[in-house]
Nucleic acid binder design. Sequence first.
RNA 1: GCCCCGGUGGUGUAGUCCGGUUAGCAUAGGGGCCUGUCGAGCCCCAGACCCGGGUUCAAAUCCCGGCCGGGGCGCCA
Length: 436
Amino acid sequence: MGSRRKEDLDMDSKNTTRVGGWVSEVRELGKDLRFIVLRSWRGKIQLTLKRGKVRDELFDLTENLPQESVIEALGEEVKEKIAKAADIEIIPEEIIIHSKSEKKLPLDPNWKVKALLPTRLDNRPLDLRRPEVQAIFKIEASLIRGFTDWLDEHGFLRVFTPALIGSYSESGAEVFEVKYFDNTAFLRQDPQLHRQLAIIGGLEKIYDLGTNWRAEPSHTTRHITEFRSLAVEMAFIKDERDVMKVEEEVVAAGISRVIEERQKELKILNVELEEPTRPFPELRFPEIYEILEGFGKKIPYGSSYDTESERLLWKYVKEEYDNDFFFVNRFPMAEKPFYVMRAEGPWARSVDLICKGLELSSGGQREHRYDILLEQIREKGVDEKQLEWYAKFFKYGAPPHGGFALGIERLTMQILNLENIREASLFPRDPERVLP
RNA sequence: GCCCCGGUGGUGUAGUCCGGUUAGCAUAGGGGCCUGUCGAGCCCCAGACCCGGGUUCAAAUCCCGGCCGGGGCGCCA
């Protein structure tokens, strides 16, 4: 007889358990013994169908059951299970087939044959069925929970700043345009300017967890066009070092939460994660130039460094401080945007956080003095009128403040040693991919 | 934006340099055998050279163009 209605399965008797999942494999040993292995959030579940022990109709029902079909079963859990590879073994009393899969699969969720990343992303829902892929997102969720709990406990207010902006947001060239009724709007590339306006609004300690977009046609393993950031902004700081202090605490809180909650997932991914030692080392310009010269790398004085330098600096920090994290402070003002606060000489109170040679965040102290801000806007050659909507509010009282924006996917990628940032995004967007 | 590399069954690969078997293998798929754990096994079957042009007796292989994809740099998170 065919499948039972769901209501029938709800009449659970005492010793029965109910499981559901995707058919990972069906193994048949002769006509009288069949194993159906399910992949589920509870782990691997083996249904054991033994002629004589289960009703014959369950054999008929599951005849030619294709891999990746979705079924539910009700049955008795075997206490001393024989199935070594399964987490749970069930002798089924009832089985319902919710959905039969096509037989030819675009990739194998059992991973007997590995698919390449583009194939995986083209077929992401099937790829996501793999426990090692799910582990990434479980870890990411814990990481974020660690961040937000720390921030909430330390008096930061979670806010949402706009993603649609009617004018220049930061650097202009790399924003996506959006048709906005009869006008044009832009997707934010960073919630920075609105965070500052919120500070001026008297929201002294805030954070925004949200999506940013960059219209950069970058072909690398560390860029996607849509990414999420944890963006923190705080008022009445002494200088940028107050911001760094918060940032390292937040990062450490996220990582220790992952260690607390996700041992199983870390093991699946074969990652040994340790809470980073604090404080994170701080490297500064212009000393950076000397460090790099020690590696035979010459950077013109007054210029910022390149990608290779980030890796060299990591090597240096690893040797000198045995840390995967470090800050770089005092970037050349000439290469930074108008809103950063100038430090002594040509340097800025501008700070990056780098993990294993990859930039995770930018931040620092912002310029809150209206006249200087205006000067810097002119200096950078930015059209004043384009920024008036933002700059004018600095006339009415702005406290010293600073913050940072930390890339969620980038941090996830770095702590899990993922080779491509796309792995840390559920449905990544890049210059070639906006579907699925 | 600049530069480099690559497209072989559903998936993942060998073969390409140096042109010439029936395009090999794995896995998934179809059929058969098997009453307990294993990535279960064994036997059989079916399935592919991105597109177009050129060179040649002969092109998966060499050349040109196109399409699609990957990566590096720049920039950034």
